[in-house]
Design a protein around this nucleic acid. Structure first.
Lengths: 137, 137
DNA sequence: AATAAAATCAGTAACGATTACTGATTTTTA
DNA sequence: TAAAAATCAGTAATCGTTACTGATTTTATT
């Protein structure tokens, strides 16, 4: 890997991501960072998000909606995706790391880990919809 | 929803998918079904896979590799994705449905379920690589 | 501080997976 | 067996993302 040089753009992207708890997409990052630097390119945002994820400073989340989300919190934790509004939020829950052991019990190969996300209706949508609990995903 | 009419193409797609345990992508379905019907269109394959998934006859798998996989086995079970060769296989393991309860404990909203997949090195790749166990995903 | 080498950039073109459109063809209903 | 509706093949368009290019920054070296 080439030596990593400092870049204002990368710093802005990382800083912006740290202010957010909603796991924005590349496009959302782009739109927001543009308010500080109107010249920044979408390609630059993508490149730096990928770079930051590769060196482990941020996390790339694939929650099945066809768009990558990004999280500045790299500590192990789980995510929830609302089937109604698509929002992604953190879950406060104990580790379920043991499921990796369970999965490996009868498996011919090596299981390194798991990716889990939960879906349903978020608090806001629940309140808006009354009692409907019909998940779409 | 419009009334569902029978279609040879849809039947072929479903039948093909039932012969496979490797959770092929739309493109793989297309290439195989074309051997029976060289005139079939890729759009038809996509449309019918989506339709079959919507009515619950097949399952769409999103395992984070950017391509949708499809599974004719709609019973609840888990999947493994090889970080080396990208193959997707079934896991024989007990249900871990209880993690949905765990996740819901401190959550403001309704959790309908979870999506989990496991990653690591499959049996074939393990044998090819010797003792290397370095996951890439 | 000035300079050179290397990384990064903005802007844009290209890409791959998927979806949408169109007029022709099947399938079903009556 | 004819009309209505769903489906089709073929193709264009879309969307998220990546790759390319010559210009600009950053860092290391004088």
């Amino acid at each position: 890997m080439a030596t990593l040089k400092h870049s204002r753009q990368r710093e802005m992207i990382k800083n912006f991501l740290m202010t957010r708890k909603d796991h924005p997409t590349a496009d959302v990052v782009y739109m927001n960072v543009r308010q500080q630097n109107p010249n920044i390119s979408l390609g630059t945002v993508y490149r730096n998000l990928t770079l930051l994820a590769d060196i482990g400073e941020i996390r790339r989340l694939r929650v099945g909606d066809g768009v990558d989300h990004f999280d500045a919190d790299t500590s192990p934790h789980y995510h929830f995706v609302c089937s109604e509004c698509g929002c992604v939020s953190d879950l406060e829950m104990d580790s379920i790391e043991e499921i990796t052991e369970i999965a490996g019990a009868n498996f011919d190969g090596y299981i390194a880990g798991h990716i889990t996300y939960f879906y349903g209706i978020c608090g806001k949508c629940t309140k808006l919809n009354g009692t409907e609990h019909t998940a779409k995903m």
